[in-house]
Nucleic acid binder design. Structure first.
Length: 109
DNA sequence: TCAGTGACTGACC
DNA sequence: GGGTCAGCCACTG
């Protein structure tokens, strides 16, 4: 796994996000040892359009806001996907985000 | 080549 | 408690 590239690792972690859970760009970046490169995680998600298996909708910013929903096909597709998994969305923000937050550095160890 | 931009974050005031 | 600034790295014009 250490041989994987940064982007590949981002995809790997994103795929490991359990359904009904969400994480943040910074959490993934931190897990990859690039906590200050959260933007790269965002860019990886942008590039994830070529990676259908990457649940980019489960990745939100540090406060649980669906900042990237605009990048999905529909205006509310990201919210729909999350709600379909049991994640409540209120005003483009994950409800009870703190409890639903999935930290790869803790869960994956 | 340089400068601007972006699905972010932490620190500072 | 809320707004602003800088850092991070890749991509585009």
């Amino acid at each position: 796994m250490e041989e994987s590239n940064f982007f590949d690792k981002v995809y790997e972690v994103a795929k490991l996000i359990p359904p009904g859970r969400v994480t943040s760009y910074g959490a993934i970046a931190k897990y990859l040892g690039a906590a200050r490169s959260a933007r790269m995680v965002g860019w990886a998600m942008n590039n994830s359009h070529s990676m259908p298996s990457v649940p980019a909708h489960r990745v939100v910013n540090r406060v649980g806001v669906l900042t990237g929903k605009h990048h999905f096909d529909g205006t509310n597709l990201m919210q729909q996907l999350l709600e379909n998994e049991g994640v409540q969305i209120k005003d483009n923000q994950v409800v009870n985000f703190k409890s639903l937050f999935w930290d790869p550095s803790l869960e994956l160890l």
